[in-house]
C-alpha cells in the first residue's frame, strides 16, 4: 500500500459504530465520499453496499467499532479505502466466513464474501479474541 499516497490535503474521516443509527450514518458518509471521489452510480452503489455489510458485521458480531474513510489518489485514478475494525470476538475460521452461505448472524450469509466481490481490494485481519479489521478499496470509474 506504500505506493499509494493519500490526497495531499489528507482527507480522512472516522466514524464510530456504536448504535444501530450509526449504520445509516456510515452509509451516508460513504455515499458522500464516493460522490466526492467521482464514483459512477454503479461503483458508488457497490461500495456503499459492501460498507453496509461490513459495518453491520462490526456492530452485530464485533460489538461495535470504527469506520475510517480515506481518499486515495494514485494518478490518474481516484479511489476510496474503508477500514472497518472492532475489538469483538474475532472470526475463528476466516476462510470459511468468506464462503457464501456462511453466517452466524442476521442476513443471508453473503456478508463477508459478498462485500469482497463488490470491491477491488479486500483485506481481512482477524484472530479469535482479538477483534476483526477489514480493509476494502474501490477505484472510481
Amino acid at each position: 500500500m506504500s505506493d499509494r499516497k493519500l490526497v495531499k490535503n489528507g482527507q480522512v474521516c472516522s466514524l464510530p459504530i456504536r448504535a444501530e443509527d450509526d449504520l445509516l450514518t456510515a452509509r451516508h458518509a460513504v455515499r458522500a465520499a464516493a460522490l466526492q471521489a467521482g464514483f459512477g452510480l454503479v461503483g458508488q452503489t457497490k461500495l456503499i453496499t459492501a460498507a453496509s455489510e461490513l459495518v453491520r458485521n462490526c456492530y452485530v458480531h464485533g460489538g461495535g467499532g470504527d469506520l475510517v474513510i480515506e481518499h486515495l489518489s494514485p494518478p490518474p485514478r481516484a479511489g476510496l479505502r474503508l477500514t472497518i475494525s472492532d475489538d469483538g470476538p474475532g472470526i475463528t475460521d476466516p476462510a470459511k466466513a468468506l464462503v457464501d452461505g456462511f453466517s452466524t448472524g442476521p442476513g443471508l450469509g453473503h456478508g463477508l464474501g459478498g462485500a469482497k466481490r463488490l470491491v477491488h481490494e479486500f483485506h481481512l485481519e482477524t484472530e479469535p479474541g482479538k477483534g476483526t479489521t477489514v480493509v476494502i478499496t474501490r477505484w472510481a470509474g
Binding site: L41, T45, K46, H110, G114, R117
Partner: peptide
C-alpha cells in the same frame, strides 16, 4: 428496482 441495485444484488449472488 434501480439498475445499480440490481447489478449489485446479482454480484452478491442474491
Amino acid at each position: 428496482m434501480r439498475y445499480p441495485v440490481a447489478i449489485t444484488l446479482v454480484e452478491l449472488g442474491l
